[in-house]
Design a protein around this nucleic acid. Structure first.
Length: 602
DNA sequence: GTGAATAGCT
């Protein structure tokens, strides 16, 4: 018969000829000759894999009595897109006498990353080290990626530092692994080391670096990366440019993001639009975000995908644009129907909750089968925002019955709901259980909720004791809750003491000085009021005005403190006056003054 | 036909 190698080369990519050859080789027993033909066996396996016909590749591999390392390598590498089967073959191999080679270790580690199997990943890496592959650039890069992706960042670092020789890919695997794991500062630092080692970084490295710049908020570095992309002409790819838009957005530079976006005219995908829309929303430019969503469809004929719609929903939540939110919801249902992703459902629940429609939030929530923890949290918050403490609590209990573990955010939402509904005892009890039973470490938000809970019901002394027990200096939210409580309870000594303490700590947040000086004023300590005002003035900062918004017949009206420019100001003031009288009759604790203002329509 | 990534989102 002809030389199998030449036969093989004549029939590569021809399935019929391949199977004939396979039969021929098997029958003639050629495959049992180990030396010269081993190479043909692995090439044949790869040929089947390329078709792709993995069952035949496996059949051929299994029918061969001799399985040289090259054949194992071929069959395992051929299963790269099927991590589960790949790892099965790996196990078969190591239970025999053959030692894996570099390609096998690389793809096996990669498969562990894909199937999130950290334990197996560790044992494969240990075997690779025993077999002398500790310094191998290929095996090392796979191990770095696997460890970083599965949360074992320290192991990733150890592997990386132990590599004999580092090349572009191994450097990039470390930079990207750190960026992905949230160690943005370290990612940037590693990139600097990479450059001093002589590697400039290609498109892949730039994507990782931009992600790190976005996360770490390093605008200077981000700009310099952007500059280098422009100079080196690497910036041509849509993915990289979209990442640049995202990087500026995450650094709070919406104007620069828009500029880059405009320069991409003609090379923008739905993802690019989505990055801009959600970015504008994140930067408080809700109206721009919604305008862009319409522009994308009407002027450019692009269909927004779920991420763009989620960005738009977040814009609606901020401005209270219920009508816009509803139409985004309608569009989602028409486009995506029942296949809504959990993030989309959560965004809808959040939007309805913040736009004053807890009932609609509930409807969306209840219609969804598989609920993730974030969705539960959003629904509990929606109840809380409307003072529906009972509903929030019973949903929380339902969540536990469904076997979902509450996290820190869940308790923030629950405590805040209980506090707004005045359910003091329940709130305190759940805070205790949160710490004792659920082992959730209280953060600033939890403490602020509990302090608020106590302070609202006039238990200022207890609130203060809790603050004193907190480790470290309490943050602004805690002080604000305590001071707000002191403001309502009349002329307490504790209030004055707390206000002095906060004032002396000179917090950065300007808003808190208002609360401080209100407490001073209530105690009649006008000299302290003057001092507090002076401190704010000297700091040169201005308080960012708080505002609220309401939608009437599709137009959104925003209201801020100390401005009377709304065209219907007089009427609004009258209505509020009536409400005030009613509330007084109902014996509600009231702010003594209220002013309503408008900063125009959005 | 061994390794890095394929953007945006609660």
């Amino acid at each position: 018969m002809r030389n199998p190698k030449s036969l093989l080369s004549s029939c590569i990519r021809d399935p019929k000829a391949l199977s004939t050859l396979h039969a021929l080789l098997t029958v003639s027993g050629t495959l049992s000759s180990p030396s010269s033909i081993a190479d043909s066996l692995s090439r044949l396996i790869f040929s089947y894999a390329r078709l792709p016909d993995l069952p035949s590749a496996l059949l051929l591999f299994d029918s061969s009595p001799h399985k040289p390392i090259s054949a194992w390598s071929a069959i395992i590498v051929s299963h790269s897109r099927h991590p589960h089967h790949l790892l099965g073959l790996y196990h078969r191999m190591i239970s025999g006498p053959t030692t894996p080679d570099s390609p096998i270790f690389s793809v096996a580690l990669k498969a562990c990353a894909a199937s999130s199997d950290l334990d197996l990943g560790r044992s494969i890496w240990a075997r690779a080290v025993d077999s002398g592959y500790k310094g191998d650039a290929f095996v090392g890069s796979s191990a770095v990626k696997m460890f970083a992706e599965l949360g074992a960042v320290e192991d990733a670092r150890r592997v990386f530092e132990g590599m004999r020789r580092r090349d572009l890919v191994s450097w990039t695997s470390m930079v990207s692994g750190l960026a992905r794991a949230g160690f943005a500062v370290d990612a940037v630092e590693t990139f600097r080391r990479m450059r001093s080692d002589g590697y400039e970084g290609d498109g892949v490295a730039m994507l990782a670096l931009l992600r790190a710049c976005a996360a770490v908020g390093d605008l200077r570095l981000g700009r310099s990366v952007h500059g280098r992309l422009l100079r080196c002409n690497v910036g041509g790819s849509m993915e990289i440019e979209t990442s640049v838009v995202d990087m500026y957005v995450k650094n709070g530079e919406a104007h620069l993001a828009v500029r880059v976006f405009e320069a991409m005219r003609g090379r923008r995908s739905a993802v690019t639009w989505g990055a801009l829309i959600s970015g504008l929303a994140q930067n408080g430019l809700a109206a721009d975000a919604l305008r862009r969503l319409i522009e994308m469809q009407r002027l450019h004929g692009l269909c927004p995908d779920s991420a763009a719609l989620v960005g738009a929903l977040s814009a609606c939540s901020q401005t209270g644009s219920l009508e816009s939110g509803k139409s985004v919801h309608g569009f989602m249902m028409r486009r995506l129907g029942l296949g809504l992703k959990p993030v989309s459902v959560t965004a809808l629940v959040d939007m309805y909750g913040k736009c004053g429609s807890p009932g609609s939030a509930e409807a969306v929530f209840c219609q969804t089968g598989a609920k993730d923890p974030i969705m539960w949290n959003a629904m509990i918050s929606a109840y809380g925002a409307h003072g529906l403490g009972r509903e929030a609590l019973s949903l929380f209990l339902e969540m536990r019955e469904a076997g979902v573990t509450p996290d820190g955010v869940t308790f923030s939402s629950l405590l805040s709901a209980l506090s707004h509904a005045g359910m003091v005892e329940e709130g305190l009890a759940w805070f205790k259980r949160m710490v004792g039973e659920f082992r959730v470490r209280p953060d600033e938000r939890h403490s602020a909720c509990v302090v608020d809970l106590l302070a609202r019901s006039g238990r200022i002394e207890e609130a203060k004791r809790l603050v004193d027990l907190m480790e470290g200096e309490p943050g602004t939210a805690v002080w604000a809750a305590l001071l707000a409580g002191c403001q309502n309870s009349k002329g307490s000594e504790t209030g004055l003491a707390v206000a002095r303490r906060v004032f002396e700590a000179r917090p950065d947040d300007v808003g808190i000085y208002t609360l401080v000086s209100n407490v001073f004023a209530k105690a009649g300590r006008w000299e302290l009021v003057a001092e507090a005002r002076k401190a704010v003035k000297d700091s040169g900062r201005r308080k960012v005005p708080g505002y609220s918004a309401v939608e009437v017949d599709g137009a959104v009206h925003g209201f801020v403190m100390e401005d009377k420019s709304h065209p219907q100001f007089g009427m609004i003031k009258q209505v509020l006056g009536r409400l005030y009288q009613q509330m007084r009759r109902m014996d509600c604790a009231l702010e003594e003054e209220f002013e309503v203002l408008d900063f125009g329509k959005f």
